[in-house]
């Protein structure tokens, strides 16, 4: 009975992932990624990882997607509405990715004993909390320091030091207005 939501979520995720890598418009690709992340959150929920599903929606879609969309807005604003995202080497990359998938699928099917029934009940949020401050407390503290370092690093790297960028040469008025308003 669990297979129906699993199959649906898997289909949505795979279809959205294909649209992410094949869509010619960058903004559309970013939004398809949002749907793929939502599909992955649904898969987490079907797998009983409800806390992880909630965190996935909150952090990935609410955080990473927002960052990506703002990044697209800042770096591609003189393209207008259709932000082109060209791609080359489809055949070679297609061969590589299909070969990779074939190897992985063969390795999974050749491993014995994978399809046993679930060993125990799913971990609740309390279990995860105990694990985070119990067994894995060192990793927890290190990850928090890493997040602080990443935040500071991103701010320092992206901080504007020059008065204006020199590379953008031909501008029409609306784009200038947008750029000035963005600063």
């Amino acid at each position: 009975m669990e297979s129906i939501p699993f199959g649906l979520a898997a289909l949505v995720t795979l279809f959205s992932a294909l649209r992410v890598v094949r869509s010619p418009n960058l903004v559309h690709a970013a939004l398809w990624l949002g749907l793929a992340l939502l599909g992955t959150a649904a898969l987490f929920a079907v797998l009983g990882a409800s806390f992880l599903a909630g965190v996935q929606v909150l952090l990935y879609i609410g955080g990473v997607m927002t960052l990506t969309l703002v990044g697209i807005m800042i770096t591609r604003r003189h393209d207008g509405l259709n932000v082109p995202a060209e791609s080359i080497g489809h055949v070679r990359a297609g061969v590589v990715s299909v070969a990779l998938f074939a190897v992985l699928a063969w390795a999974i099917s050749a491993t014995p004993g994978l399809d046993a029934a679930p060993l125990g009940p799913d971990a609740t949020t309390q279990d995860i909390g105990h694990a985070l401050v119990g067994t894995h407390v060192l990793a927890f503290e290190v990850v928090s320091m890493l997040l602080l370092a990443a935040m500071l690093g991103a701010i320092v790297i992206a901080r504007r030091k020059d008065p204006a960028p020199h590379a953008v040469t031909h501008l029409h008025v609306p784009a200038t207005a947008v750029r000035e308003a963005a600063e």
């Binding site: 898997a10 995720t13 795979l14 992932a17 294909l18 992410v20 890598v21 960058l26 690709a29 970013a30 990624l33 898969l43 990506t68 990044g71 697209i72 770096t75 591609r76 995202a85 060209e86 791609s87 080359i88 080497g89 489809h90 070679r92 990359a93 297609g94 590589v96 990715s97 299909v98 990779l100 998938f101 992985l104 699928a105 999974i108």
Partner: peptide
């Protein structure tokens, strides 16, 4: 197998895309 498929699709995107943000996706 589903995770492998997603990973392979990601590899395809990584190898073909020319825009930095598309590579990040």
């Amino acid at each position: 197998v589903l995770a492998s498929a997603l990973f392979s699709i990601g590899i395809y995107g990584l190898l073909t895309r020319r825009q930095a943000i598309a590579v990040l996706l």
